[in-house]
Amino acid sequence: MPVRRLNHAVLYVNGLKREVEFYTQTLGFEVRMEIPGRAAFLRSPGSVNDHDLGLFDIGAGRATGGPQVGLYHLAWEVGTLAELVEAREKLRAAGALVGESDHRLSKSLYAKDPSGIEFEVMWRVPVEDWDSELAQGEAYTVPLDWDRTLTRWDAGRETGSAAGSPT
């Protein structure tokens, strides 16, 4: 019985309203259900899940930003490079973007939500290009070269789960 993909994530946050606004405005989640001041359940448009993200307000706590035992980050996948570019602009406008990486098999953005919780938004390289991407050098993670990436693949090409990949 293999695990296929993340079904949903649940985060403890401080400032539920602010967090709901952040995730709806930057990543396009929609509110499925909310318990005012306590919890919200958000869903990606078109998702078949009851919710993809649960947010529970814990009050004045804040993530320290330093490594700790526990969750490091979550990664959400977009279907096209155009969607990754759109996410980048929204995250930059929100002051949330903290990094960009090329992991050879994925192109990734890193951001922090208003509570300081880090997350990744990534686009999967088409499977048929994995070998050539891995042959680009010894380092598995390098700075994301947007010019190379947008020249190499059509920005509207769907990959990963958007293209029906079961993994």
Rank of each mutant, 00 (worst) to 15 (best):
V20H: 01
T24Q: 07
T24K: 09
T24W: 09
Q25N: 14
L27M: 12
L27D: 08
L27T: 05
G28I: 07
G28V: 07
F29A: 02
F29T: 05
E30P: 00
V31I: 09
R32F: 09
M33Q: 12
E34W: 00
I35R: 11
R38P: 01
R38T: 08
A39C: 07
L42C: 04
L42M: 09
R43G: 14
R43P: 06
S44T: 13
S44H: 10
P45R: 00
N49E: 15
N49R: 11
N49S: 13
D52F: 05
L53H: 06
L53C: 07
L53E: 02
D57S: 08
I58H: 15
R62Q: 15
A63C: 11
T64H: 10
T64N: 06
T64D: 14
G65V: 12
G65K: 13
G65W: 14
G66V: 14
P67N: 12
Q68G: 05
G70F: 09
L71N: 09
L71A: 08
W76P: 06
E77G: 06
E77W: 06
E83N: 04
E83R: 11
E83P: 01
L84P: 05
E86K: 13
E86Y: 09
A87T: 07
R88E: 12
R88P: 07
E89M: 08
L91R: 00
A94F: 01
H103F: 12
R104L: 13
L105F: 03
S106L: 08
L109M: 11
Y110H: 12
D113Y: 03
D113S: 02
D113L: 09
P114T: 08
S115F: 04
G116R: 11
G116P: 11
G116L: 10
I117V: 14
F119W: 10
M122F: 15
M122I: 08
M122N: 13
W123M: 05
R124F: 10
V125H: 06
V125F: 01
V125D: 10
P126I: 04
D129E: 14
W130C: 00
L134Y: 12
L134P: 04
L134K: 15
G137R: 02
